[in-house]
Simulated assay, not measured.
Amino acid sequence: MRTDWSGEPKLDYDDYDRAGISEDATREHPARNQKRPKKPAAMNQESTEGLYYSLAYAIAGIEYALNMGDPTYVQQSGMIESEQQQFIREHPLEDIRNHTYWENNPRYEYKFLDPHPQKNGDQYSWDYKLYVAHGSYYVSNGQVHDTTLSSTPKPDEKPSGEYYRGTITGKYTNGAWVLSGFFNGEKKSSSS
């Protein structure tokens, strides 16, 4: 049994549906056939494992929406409604769906800092570091726009993005996790 749940929350390989060959976005076309997250059975458990997989599913939904413009999996996650709406408002999902805007390799990379969440009564909290990557370029209405200083990044150079520190909270209610705090982190100047 796993004892350390720190690090980047990820779904297992079998927790995705695949439709055709997945292709990342390029300067010529948006992402295609991205894997769709499936709800893992463990996410309904009232346990650290259940909370972890509920968070991993929501984060996989964010990644899918950023690539395909479809917020379905964000909306099916345990993320509270106000944060779902905030995410939808702050990202050009309709333009992504219509292939008039896309980024290469957009992602929200969460890393949990502790092996287990902190419990306070019936609420759990888990501190995280978040790196929001925008990729090295984006395409808008057919025009490519570089977002890094050079169009050929060095091997260790991260694409443009921001760093945050925050806390996600979860409460197990009616057989499912209700989650909040995905977007309330404090902006940091680096990965510290």
Rank of each mutant, 00 (worst) to 15 (best):
P30G: 06
R32I: 13
N33S: 07
N33L: 08
R36A: 11
A42C: 10
M43D: 13
M43T: 12
N44L: 08
N44D: 15
E46D: 15
S47K: 07
G50Q: 12
L51C: 06
L51V: 05
Y53M: 13
S54M: 04
Y57W: 02
A58N: 03
Y64E: 12
G69H: 06
D70E: 10
Q76R: 09
S77W: 00
G78K: 01
I80D: 09
Q85S: 08
Q86W: 03
I88H: 04
H91F: 00
P92D: 04
E94M: 09
Y101E: 15
Y101D: 14
P106R: 03
K111V: 09
L113P: 04
K119Y: 00
Y128L: 02
K129G: 08
S136K: 08
Y137N: 08
S140T: 15
Q143S: 14
H145Q: 13
H145R: 13
D146T: 14
T147N: 09
T148G: 14
L149T: 12
T152F: 00
D156W: 02
D156A: 11
K158R: 11
S160Y: 10
E162C: 07
Y163I: 00
R165V: 12
G166F: 03
I168H: 01
T169Q: 11
G170F: 02
T173I: 12
A176M: 03
